[in-house]
Design a protein around this nucleic acid. Structure first.
Lengths: 253, 253
DNA sequence: GTTTCAAAGTGGTCATACCAAAAAACCACT
DNA sequence: AGTGGTTTTTTGGTATGACCACTTTGAAAC
């Protein structure tokens, strides 16, 4: 009962391993969806037995951080899987939600851009620059454009150094990707838009590179506003073709 | 290869054991505090290996249902006061994530304020006004302040008319509430702050009321910036004291 | 370029042994 | 009886090695 002599928390090996892995996850060192080394290799690297590694993984599995499939390896649970199929269902049930989701994501990305400008490590800056140079190179196949662009934004997201943000983004990102793929939205239509986007990307990168949080935030905001407006246009076109009622949004105006 | 007679997804032994034990616990067959049979005996009774029993117990331990102490046996944990969200665990594992989460939430709320100003229905406006009048009334018991304030923000969130946003907020809100309660953060400390918050709330409400999205966004941004800065101060204070007593719920359990 | 299929890799389970800590049994001695 | 110390037993924790079932992968065959 005497609190003065608190016992040493006899550190169990398995707990130690679990903590370490959890640290890697929460620090973003291990990204959602990423497959971590096999149990044998992990045990070897950490200098412990496979039993202990399994015990640690058992804990993390029970808490939903990782998902193991027999023969397939163990992966960091994509937050979307465990957190929110509900959100995906929500979006699928009402297309207006897709637009909301895109707006929400835009807001988060603006925040991430500022954080990246303020906190990115040299390595992360290098990665952003690499992605940037890719999307700025001319004559890249248009098929890869969307993916390259996504990588650029993803690099910035990682540079925000926020595990919370990364997990939220993985939720929103998965859903958005599904939805956009489903509806076959083709952004970046005109060459004019393309040039404009490139210019905006350059501004974002420049701001982050010189660590200017305000500028990064503003540049990202402008970029996403443009993107969203393009999406709006496509949406309106599509809706004019096939009538889609809009129940809510009783505008006052 | 006839899929019709495909076997049930091969239930893992450990999971089967865990389920059985959990059933006994939840049915009261195993009372809280009761010591359950040793791992060897358990394995023998169930006709499985001790490894599988241990894997099952590892899961239950990770979820807080049982507590094992070396040499002392494994006992049913009294009350499993566990909050279950992957994001919550993420935040609990690293306190820096809490701040990130608060910032993310702030960004979303700013967005919601604008939407509310632009799209709120008359009924929703009335609800916001009701909540507003409550938090503006003097001499309300300080115990209810936090809750009233939350209701005000919640009314605005609802007025954004976005299911996606509401869903995300419900996730973030739950976590933040639990985290703040756990760390015993007491915002709204000084009367000066209190007055300032009231003024900011008034500005937010005024902007929404007249349908001014820009002003609503700006007012909410300013408000949350203030709140976050207060949180920063408390965080620094606490960290300077360092000796945080940390009650029962610490991860080690 | 596909399809097929066997080898490699991975998680899941088992058996055995040993270690460390707690609990229980035992044994003095007062 | 009761107290304190010692020994023995029980219990959870870890290590090793082996095997199984499944997935992945890549080379062979088409």
């Amino acid at each position: 009962m005497d609190r003065r002599f608190q016992e040493i928390p006899r550190e169990r090996v398995a707990d130690r391993i679990a903590s370490e892995l959890l640290r890697m996850i929460s620090s973003g060192e291990l990204a959602p969806g990423e497959r971590l080394p096999g149990e044998r290799q992990l045990a070897d690297m950490m200098g412990v037995s496979r039993v202990s590694v399994r015990a640690a993984l058992q804990q993390l599995k029970a808490q939903g951080f990782v998902t193991a499939v027999q023969g397939g390896g163990t992966r960091i649970t994509a937050a979307a899987d465990q957190l929110d199929s509900a959100l995906a269902r929500l979006v699928r049930s009402n297309r207006n939600n897709l637009h909301d989701l895109a707006e929400v994501r835009a807001n988060l990305e603006v925040w991430a851009a500022r954080r990246a400008a303020e906190r990115a490590t040299p390595e992360q800056l290098a990665e952003i620059e690499r992605c940037f140079s890719i999307i700025m190179s001319p004559d890249r196949p248009s098929r890869a454009k969307a993916e390259d662009d996504l990588n650029f934004h993803l690099a910035i997201a990682k540079a925000s150094n926020s595990a919370v943000f990364m997990h939220l983004m993985s939720i929103l990102g998965d859903i958005l990707e599904q939805m956009f793929a489903f509806h076959r939205y083709s952004l970046y239509a005109s060459p004019a838009d393309d040039r404009r986007f490139m210019e905006q990307h350059r501004a974002i990168w420049a701001a982050i590179q010189r660590g200017d949080g305000d500028a990064a935030e503003e540049a990202m905001r402008e970029h996403l506003t443009t993107v969203l407006s393009r999406y709006e246009e496509e949406k309106e076109e599509e809706e004019s073709q096939q009538a889609a009622p809009q129940p809510q949004a009783a505008a006052r105006g």
